[in-house]
């Protein structure tokens, strides 16, 4: 649990409270898998788990998207290029991209949940020929709250990726769908008997998405979710992130619904 000091290469404001930091990797052999996270440390203030949101094929920088929601994240997003952060990791399980090979791929994200799935989208696009239809469904609060809007725009222009975006509230100037992200599921093209779904967002959004996908015929071993729990140590030592027999920090965050065996439906488990 020793952080190492790393330089910040750039800081970009994505949304009023959300920033993307590019951090110098500890070495040329540093790599991560889509879905993993690091522990970022603001010297003397504290440490938080932050998912990696960059391209897994780019070894020159560690890209992390942070929403300022407390003392530590506030300190992290206040950094400027040249400052340093403490880094540990990468930690946790990855989106199982192997499971999606030869199949239709459905990626569903809500809100800031797009950050942990961006490496997955990029990885799938880097090896596009391995997959069938690839669909990204994204739900956000409002058009102003769309994360990575430029990149979404770029992805929408591709012929080999279907991107559907919905928001919960919009002014009349918005030309896209308004409604929950599950309402997009019926509008996208995939074969539920052979597709793999990767879901990341607030827990309630994931619950309803799972329910909708199961109704569409998805089996729970092809449904991947990224769980959120209180992760303090990242290595399965501190106990805070326990869910049943799992420590989400090391047995997760990415898990299949089959692994969880319905435990995400139980109150306060």
């Amino acid at each position: 649990m020793r952080p190492t000091a790393r330089r910040i290469l750039s800081v970009e404001r994505e949304l009023p409270d959300t920033y993307t930091l590019e951090i110098e990797p500890p070495g040329s052999d540093w790599s991560f898998l889509p879905g993993q996270y690091t522990m970022l440390y603001a010297f003397g203030i504290g440490e938080v788990p932050i998912s990696i949101s960059g391209d897994p094929s780019d070894a020159t920088r560690i890209v992390q998207t942070i929403r300022a929601a407390g003392a530590v994240t506030d300190a992290l997003v206040a950094k400027v290029p040249g400052d340093f952060v403490g880094l540990r990791g990468p930690y946790g399980t990855a989106w199982d991209t192997k499971a999606g090979e030869g199949r239709d791929v459905l990626i569903i994200a809500g809100g800031i949940g797009l950050a942990p799935v961006r490496p997955l989208v990029l990885d799938v696009l880097n090896h596009r020929d391995r997959y069938g239809n690839v669909t990204l469904l994204y739900g956000a609060r409002s058009p102003r709250d769309l994360l990575f809007a430029d990149q979404l725009q770029e992805w929408r222009g591709r012929f080999d990726l279907e991107v559907l975006i919905t928001v919960d509230q919009a002014e009349q100037t918005w030309r896209g769908p308004v409604g929950v992200v599950t309402s997009l599921i019926g509008r996208s093209s995939f074969d539920p008997d052979a597709a793999v779904a990767y879901v990341c967002g607030p827990e309630v959004m994931m619950r309803f998405t799972i329910q909708e996908l199961e109704r569409k015929g998805f089996s729970d071993d092809r449904l991947y979710v990224s769980m959120e729990r209180n992760m303090k140590c990242g290595i399965g030592l501190c106990g805070h992130c326990q869910l049943g027999r799992f420590f989400i920090c090391k047995d997760g965050p990415v898990m299949t619904c089959a692994q969880m065996a319905g435990s995400c439906w139980i109150r306060e488990v």
Binding site: G110, G111, I112, A140, D145, D168, G201, V204
Partner: peptide
């Protein structure tokens, strides 16, 4: 039911 989820404003930040 979908509208209920929409009402929850699930993507907002709590702090």
């Amino acid at each position: 039911q979908a509208l209920r989820i929409q009402l929850l404003d699930v993507y907002s930040t709590f702090r």
